[in-house]
Simulated scan of single mutants.
Amino acid sequence: MFYWFLKWVAIGPWLRLVFRPQVSGAEHVPADGPAILASNHLSYADWLFMPLTLPRRVTFVAKAEYFNTPGIKGWFQKKFFAGSGQVPIDRSGASAAEGAMSAAKRILEGGELFGIYPEGTRSHDGKLYRGKTGVARLALECRVPVIPVAVVGTDVVAPPGRTFGRFTRPTVRFGAPLDFSRYEGMENDRYILRSITDEIMYEIMRLSGQEYVDMYAARAKEESKKEPTPPSAPDQRLAS
């Protein structure tokens, strides 16, 4: 109930009024039953705008810190994230990936929509990076379709490293469901998992128009920090 209050009364109308998000392909999302929504990840605002375009609840996993912060602030934070379709997951340990998979399976087995960002983290430069194979394993083990999603413009509204950016109308594009039932029983074949994941990422790339980089986003982000700063141009006034 709190989720519906948050979406339709507290946040939804305000976001719709101010940003007027555009949507296409929403008819590809089933009216009922489980499905995976696999999206690109440009901004922390993605999880707000994508579910806003659908009448159904979309559930994501979020880091546990959002749910166990003490005090009044922590209480409101917990209510906000729980109400907006987030479930906690401890991402600090070695079992973080398995914990996320278990949570996702529970959501899908309950007939709900599960949202996932195959890149694993936000893109730091607007490019689309290599997907992790968890989305493929989840699709095969739960026997559910994968709907590719592209969110465009959220990195303008809320750029990486900043709370607010510039005004624009975000766009959410849903692609046709991808059926991987032909690979049933092959969820432990890493070549199959990679093939499925690459197919999903290709569809996301096609919908988003992003440049694709065959590298994991986390690694690309780390390497970008190591790049030397280009020397500044000499002051021509001093050189003359």
Rank of each mutant, 00 (worst) to 15 (best):
G161P: 08
R57W: 01
L193T: 11
Q210K: 15
A176T: 03
L48C: 11
S84I: 06
G209I: 01
A150W: 01
A220R: 09
A10L: 15
L37D: 06
M50K: 05
L52H: 00
G71H: 06
R169G: 06
S232Y: 07
R237I: 13
S240N: 12
P234C: 06
A233E: 14
D235E: 13
A104D: 07
D155E: 09
S240D: 13
G25I: 04
A103R: 13
T171G: 13
Q77D: 04
W47I: 15
Y66W: 09
N68I: 13
V135N: 03
K225R: 14
S224A: 15
D32S: 13
R57I: 09
R122G: 02
D90S: 04
T197M: 11
A38I: 10
A94P: 07
F76C: 11
K127C: 07
A103M: 10
R219Q: 15
Q22G: 11
F167L: 12
A62V: 05
G153T: 02
S195Q: 14
P30V: 10
T121H: 05
F2Y: 12
P231Y: 14
N40L: 01
E109P: 00
F19D: 00
R143K: 12
T121R: 10
L238A: 14
L54G: 06
G74R: 06
R130S: 12
Q86N: 14
R173G: 03
D235N: 14
L37W: 05
A38G: 09
G120T: 04
F174Y: 15
G83F: 01
V146F: 03
F80G: 07
Q86P: 08
